[in-house]
């Protein structure tokens, strides 16, 4: 088995790993780096539960090969809070009870953060379309969208 040596950064920390050519970034994050915040809901890029950013760009980590992450900046849900200080999005998701089972929540947070970094003042429709790649089966999205819009407003004001 020929493994590939990869050097990258995850949530700002330097990371090295050996991966098989077919292994996905999600596999390595979860199984080697033990960052299990990203979830495998489908493995085919349809559910968004494995969302991470690669150099700031929102991707499904199940569709990225682990070898492709070399030399890039990977950001996962584990890096959203600043130490003990929750990000505004995390606070708003909690305040608005915008999670039930919580398994889609890491992906939603990563995707919503990417949205607000690019579009600090989205309309509700824009937020809904941006998050259309993140399936949630529990909430009907209502409280998630409310939380994201509330976070956006607070971040603009901050």
């Amino acid at each position: 088995m020929n493994k590939i040596h990869v050097t990258t950064t995850v949530n700002g920390d330097p990371v090295e790993y050996l991966c098989e050519p077919q292994e996905t970034l999600l596999d390595v994050l979860r199984n080697q780096l033990r960052l299990t915040g990203a979830k495998e809901g489908c493995g085919t890029g349809d559910c968004g539960a494995c969302s991470v950013t690669l150099n700031g760009r929102l991707v499904c980590s199940c569709l990225v090969l682990a070898a492709e992450a070399g030399g890039q900046e990977v950001a996962t849900v584990e890096g959203i809070a600043d130490g003990d200080n929750l990000h505004i999005l995390q606070k708003k998701i909690l305040e608005h009870a915008a999670l039930q089972c919580g398994v889609c929540t890491p992906g939603i947070l990563v995707a919503a953060k990417a949205l607000l970094e690019k579009h600090p003042d989205p309309t509700e429709v824009e937020a809904r379309y941006w998050l259309a790649g993140n399936l949630c089966r529990c909430t009907g999205y209502d409280k998630i969208i409310t939380a994201v819009m509330d976070a956006a407003a607070e971040m603009r004001g901050a």
């Binding site: 979860r30 033990r34 960052l35 299990t36 915040g37 990203a38 979830k39 495998e40 996962t76 849900v77 584990e78 959203i80 809070a81 929750l86 995390q90 998701i93 909690l94 305040e95 009870a97 999670l99 919580g102 398994v103 929540t105 890491p106 947070l109």
Partner: peptide, 23 residues
Amino acid sequence: TRPLRPDGIDKVTGRALYGADMV
């Protein structure tokens, strides 16, 4: 009233352990 859920922080930080997260 509407207090925060006690498992909330684990679930917004990726710490919560689901079925496939245990080794």
